[in-house]
Amino acid sequence: MIDEPYRWVEAISNRREYIENELATGSPTIGLSFSKGILLLTFGRDRRKIFEIYDRIAMGAIGHPGDIERLRMTAIELAGTEGFTRSAADVSLRRMVTYSFSPALKQAFEQIYGAPYLARILFAEVGPSEESDLFVRLDYDGTMHANSMGGGKNRENFGAIAGTRRGLERVESVLSRAKVSNLRSALEAAIRAWGSGFYAAGEDHPDAPEESVVNEFVKSRLEQYSIEAALLERGGTASRVAFVEVPESDLEAALSKFR
């Protein structure tokens, strides 16, 4: 089959369609950077979806739990061995994603007799200042999108993944307008972004929803979904490990608006 270029292109295109369908129902994961650090937030039904990778790096994911697990373990092993042989300061999300993950995912995707990774990942790395926070969205075919690739490009202070392109656009549109000053406002913005994105992805809703519709939607989802959030704290802590789970009390306070 792969002797014929046309068949190969067709096979890849089928494969893409299949994976996109599988990912379409995924619940968005939001990364939002503010003065205290990076907030990662999602809602899930039955399993954890936000993970600590290294001292300043965390990830969120949509996809098959088995594939997410393989990618998560690879990231932890890569970062851990680099941090051990050189130093924690040498562990870089940009290097890890560009040189290790992207080529491997592309290869798995295009080897049409093997199984691709059914996963879409959001990596976040907290830096010394908001300007140095990095978000990278990595797709099943190895394509990646970072909130800034250096140079003069406008930076975004967020990163996100969603099941569908439209869902992602909704999330990003909410996040780009959000005014965030503290953890509370970051949580509220992220919950609203999640609601808008998931609302757009799940059903046939081409237009941006009104705020009241989003609030109502989040409220209805709270019956099946539970919130999950973690913070990559910026500097300041005694330990160099930045990853902390957001306390239950803060989550409840932020959700009270939607209940």
Partner: peptide, 15 residues
Amino acid sequence: RILEHSFQFYRRSQL
């Protein structure tokens, strides 16, 4: 160094 990395590796990988 090995211990420090081992405990963190365990926490991160085994949750």
